[in-house]
Simulated scan of single mutants.
Amino acid sequence: MDNIILDVTARRAARVHRVRSRAFGDRAYTVVVALLLGTAVLAILYPLYFIVIASLSEPDAVNDGQVWVLPHGVTLDGYRRLFADPRVWQGVTNSLLYTTLATGVSLVLILSAGYALSRKDLPWRNVITGLFLVTFFFDGGIIPRYLVVKELGMLNSVWAMVLPNAIAVWNLLIARTYFASSVPDEVREAAQVDGASELRIFLQVVLPLAKPLIAVLVLIHMVWNWNAYFDALVYLTDESKYPLQLVLRNILIQSEASGAGSLSSDLASYSEQQRVGELVKYAMIVVSTLPLLIVSPFAQRYLSRGEVTGAVKG
C-alpha cells in the first residue's frame, strides 16, 4: 500500500513538474517573441518618428546628435518656408487629382476584369489570362510607351498619369484569384434565380463580399500613385501640372545645387541658408508621407477580414 501511495505521489509530482516546465517555456517563448516584435516595430517606426522631430528641431542639434526622443530647439521655419511656395500647393492639388482618378480607374478595370476572368463560363479565359501574363514578363520599354502616349495625344495631360499604368497585372491576378476562391458560386446562382442581371450581381452581390480585396487594391494604388514621379518626369512638360513628388524633387535639386534654393534665397547669410535648407528637407519627407499615414489605418480593418465567410451555410 505504501508503495502504491509513493508511486501515485511521484507521478503527481512529475506531472506538476512537467506542467510548470511547460508554463515556464510558454512564458519564455512569449517574452522572446514580444522582444523580437517590439524591436522590429521600433526599427520600422523610429526612423519615421526621427524625421518628424528632426523637422521641428534646430539642424545644429540634429547634427550634434542631441535629437533622439524629443525635438530640440523647436522651430517651424522649414514648414513655413515650404508651404509659402505656391508650387507645393499646386503639387498637392495635382497629386490628389492624379491619385484619386488613377486609383478609381484602376479599381474599375481590375475588379471588372478580375471577376470576368474568374468565371468558369467565360470563353477562352485561360488564353486571355495568358495574354495578360505576357505583358507581366515582357515590356516594350520607356521609348515605345512614350511613343504610344504621344500618338494617343495624351502628352502633358492628366491621362498620361492615369492610363499607362491603369492595370497592374499582379493586382489583376490577385483579384481573379480572390473572386475564384472566396466568392461562392452558390451566391451568384441564388441571385440569378431571383432574376438579377450579371451587372446587378457584380455590383450588389460580388463587390460587397469583396471589401477586403477592394481595401487592399485601394491602398496599393494610392501608395503607388501618390509616390509616382517618373511618369510625370517623362510625360509632363508643364510645371503647373507636376505632382507633389516631382515638385519636391525639383526643390531638393535646387537646394543641393545652390546650397539654399528658392525657398531660402532671401537670406543673406550662407549658414542661415544651409540651416533652412536642412529644415526644408526634413519637412519635405513629412509632407510627402503624411497623407498616406492618415489614410492607411482606415483600410487596415478590412485587410484581415474575410467577410465572405459564412455567406453560404449548410
Rank of each mutant, 00 (worst) to 15 (best):
D266E: 05
P184N: 01
Q245C: 09
F137M: 14
I201R: 02
V31P: 06
A180S: 08
T100Y: 02
L82Q: 00
I253M: 13
D77K: 05
A232L: 11
K281I: 07
W226G: 04
Q66S: 07
Y29S: 09
D77M: 08
L293N: 10
E186Y: 02
L203G: 11
I251P: 13
A166R: 11
A166L: 11
F50N: 03
S55V: 06
S269F: 01
I294V: 15
F138K: 11
D185M: 04
I110N: 14
E256K: 00
M1T: 14
S255F: 11
P59I: 00
A191N: 11
A268S: 10
E272P: 06
V287Q: 04
L133Y: 07
S55C: 09
L213F: 10
V32L: 10
K241L: 13
P208G: 09
R125P: 11
S265W: 06
P297Y: 02
S95D: 08
T135Q: 14
L246F: 15
I4M: 05
L248M: 08
R305T: 08
N63E: 08
L107F: 13
E189R: 05
Y302W: 09
G140H: 13
D231V: 10
M154A: 12
N3P: 05
V280P: 06
I44F: 03
R20S: 10
Q273S: 02
V74R: 04
A268Y: 02
R27I: 08
S269M: 03
G261I: 10
P243Q: 12
E307I: 15
A13E: 05
L111R: 15
T177A: 14
L248E: 02
R188Y: 12
E186G: 06
L279C: 05
I110Q: 15
T237N: 11
Y178L: 01
G153P: 14
L252R: 08
R275H: 00
A191R: 07
E256N: 09
R22C: 03
D85M: 05
L219Y: 01
R27N: 07
V74I: 12
R12F: 07
L111D: 13
R188G: 12
L173T: 08
D231T: 04
E272K: 03
D7K: 15
L217K: 06
G130D: 09
P144R: 06
I253C: 09
V187K: 03
P243H: 12
V295H: 03
S157L: 08
T103F: 04
A102F: 01
N227I: 14
A232P: 13
I44V: 14
W89V: 09
S106W: 08
Y282M: 15
I220Q: 03
A215T: 07
L131R: 06
Q254I: 05
I51A: 12
E58H: 07
P47N: 02
I4G: 06
L111W: 14
E239M: 14
P47R: 06
S182H: 10
A175I: 10
G310I: 15
L122N: 05
Y49N: 05
N126V: 10
L203F: 12
V312K: 12
L101S: 04
L163F: 09
Y79C: 00
G114P: 12
V148L: 09
L233G: 01
V33F: 04
L82I: 00
Y229L: 13
